[in-house]
Measured scan of single mutants.
Amino acid sequence: NQASVVANQLIPINTALTLVMMRSEVVTPVGIPADDIPRLVSMQVNRAVPLGTTLMPDMVKGYP
């Protein structure tokens, strides 16, 4: 099973992602692959992302 990117904390709308905000976890449904975490750094979320939420491609501005 492939690990996905999961919010490690509440991420407010328009926040630029940092490594501490994300963790990898095997979840269903599958979200953004954990391998993409380095690419996500400094990209902004377009909505508030609660703790434990799987990051989906449509939540991150400019992804992929």
Rank of each mutant, 00 (worst) to 15 (best):
N1M: 15
N1H: 08
N1W: 12
Q2V: 13
Q2L: 14
Q2G: 15
Q2M: 14
Q2T: 14
Q2R: 05
A3Y: 15
A3Q: 08
A3T: 13
A3S: 09
A3R: 06
A3E: 13
A3H: 09
A3V: 06
S4L: 02
S4M: 02
S4K: 00
S4Y: 03
S4A: 03
S4H: 02
S4C: 04
S4R: 02
V5C: 07
V5T: 08
V5D: 01
V5E: 00
V5F: 02
V6A: 03
V6G: 00
V6K: 03
V6M: 04
V6T: 12
V6Y: 02
A7S: 14
A7M: 05
A7Y: 02
A7R: 01
N8I: 06
N8P: 02
N8C: 08
Q9W: 08
Q9L: 10
Q9R: 08
Q9F: 13
Q9M: 14
Q9H: 10
L10M: 09
L10H: 12
L10C: 15
L10S: 11
I11D: 00
I11T: 00
I11H: 00
I11E: 02
I11Y: 01
I11W: 00
I11V: 12
I11A: 01
I11P: 02
I11C: 03
P12F: 07
P12H: 10
P12D: 11
P12E: 06
P12Y: 07
P12C: 08
P12T: 07
P12W: 06
I13N: 14
I13H: 09
I13S: 10
I13R: 07
I13F: 12
N14I: 03
N14R: 07
N14H: 12
N14M: 14
N14A: 08
T15E: 07
T15P: 01
T15I: 06
T15A: 07
T15V: 10
T15M: 11
T15S: 09
T15K: 06
T15R: 07
T15C: 06
A16Y: 13
A16K: 08
A16W: 14
A16N: 06
A16L: 10
A16R: 07
L17W: 02
L17G: 01
L17E: 00
L17V: 03
T18M: 11
T18C: 04
T18K: 07
T18W: 03
T18Y: 03
T18I: 04
T18E: 05
T18Q: 07
T18D: 04
L19G: 04
L19I: 09
L19H: 06
L19Y: 12
L19W: 14
L19M: 14
V20D: 05
V20E: 05
V20H: 13
V20F: 13
M21H: 06
M21Y: 07
M21V: 03
M21E: 00
M21I: 03
M22R: 00
M22C: 03
M22V: 09
M22Q: 00
M22D: 01
M22T: 01
M22F: 15
R23C: 04
R23P: 02
R23W: 03
R23F: 04
S24A: 13
S24V: 12
S24W: 09
S24I: 13
S24T: 13
E25H: 07
E25C: 06
E25P: 00
E25D: 15
E25M: 10
E25V: 11
E25R: 08
V26L: 14
V26S: 12
V26Y: 13
V26N: 12
V26F: 15
V26W: 12
V26C: 07
V26H: 10
V27C: 06
V27A: 07
V27E: 02
V27W: 02
V27D: 02
V27F: 03
T28M: 11
T28E: 15
T28C: 15
T28S: 10
T28W: 06
T28P: 01
T28K: 06
P29H: 05
P29A: 04
P29E: 06
P29V: 09
P29I: 07
P29K: 05
P29S: 04
P29N: 05
V30P: 14
V30S: 12
V30T: 11
V30C: 15
V30F: 13
V30N: 14
V30W: 13
G31I: 01
G31Y: 02
G31L: 02
G31H: 02
G31P: 00
G31R: 02
G31W: 02
G31V: 01
G31N: 01
G31S: 02
I32C: 04
I32G: 01
I32L: 06
I32P: 00
I32Y: 02
I32Q: 01
I32T: 00
I32F: 03
P33Q: 07
P33D: 11
P33I: 11
P33W: 06
P33E: 05
P33G: 06
A34Q: 06
A34E: 08
A34K: 05
D35S: 13
D35A: 09
D35W: 07
D35E: 14
D35Y: 12
D35T: 12
D35H: 11
D35V: 13
D36V: 10
D36M: 13
D36R: 11
D36W: 11
D36P: 00
D36K: 10
D36F: 12
D36Q: 14
D36Y: 12
I37L: 12
I37S: 04
I37K: 06
I37Y: 03
I37P: 01
I37V: 05
I37Q: 05
I37N: 01
P38T: 12
P38Y: 12
P38W: 13
P38Q: 12
P38D: 10
P38L: 13
R39C: 12
R39S: 09
R39N: 11
R39Y: 11
R39I: 07
R39Q: 09
R39H: 10
L40R: 01
L40D: 00
V41E: 05
V41R: 06
V41D: 03
V41Y: 07
V41S: 03
V41P: 02
V41F: 08
S42A: 14
S42L: 15
S42H: 14
M43H: 12
M43W: 13
M43Q: 07
M43R: 08
M43A: 09
Q44F: 15
Q44R: 13
Q44V: 13
Q44C: 07
Q44N: 09
Q44A: 15
Q44W: 14
V45M: 06
V45N: 01
V45E: 00
V45D: 00
V45I: 08
V45W: 00
N46M: 15
N46P: 02
N46Q: 12
N46L: 15
N46R: 11
R47W: 06
R47H: 10
R47Y: 09
R47G: 04
R47F: 08
A48I: 14
A48W: 07
A48L: 11
A48H: 13
A48C: 14
A48T: 08
V49H: 01
V49E: 02
V49I: 11
V49M: 05
V49D: 02
V49R: 02
V49W: 02
V49G: 02
P50Y: 14
P50H: 11
P50R: 09
P50T: 11
P50V: 06
L51I: 14
L51F: 13
L51K: 12
L51E: 11
L51S: 12
L51V: 09
G52N: 13
G52I: 02
G52A: 06
G52Y: 05
G52T: 03
G52V: 02
G52M: 04
G52E: 04
T53S: 13
T53A: 14
T53D: 08
T53W: 14
T53E: 08
T53K: 12
T53V: 14
T54L: 05
T54W: 03
T54R: 04
T54C: 04
T54E: 01
L55Q: 00
L55A: 01
L55D: 02
L55K: 02
L55C: 02
L55E: 01
L55R: 00
L55M: 11
L55S: 00
M56N: 06
M56E: 06
M56W: 05
M56V: 09
M56C: 08
M56H: 10
M56Q: 12
P57A: 11
P57R: 09
P57G: 09
P57H: 15
D58V: 08
D58K: 08
D58H: 11
D58E: 12
D58R: 09
D58N: 12
D58P: 07
D58S: 13
M59C: 05
M59W: 08
M59S: 05
M59H: 07
M59T: 05
V60C: 02
V60S: 01
V60P: 02
V60W: 02
V60A: 01
V60K: 00
V60L: 09
K61E: 13
K61P: 09
K61M: 12
K61N: 11
K61L: 13
K61Y: 10
K61I: 11
G62Y: 06
G62F: 06
G62L: 11
G62Q: 06
G62I: 05
G62S: 11
G62E: 13
Y63H: 06
Y63C: 05
Y63S: 05
Y63N: 05
Y63D: 05
Y63F: 09
P64I: 15
P64S: 15
P64T: 15
P64W: 05
P64R: 12
P64C: 15
P64K: 15
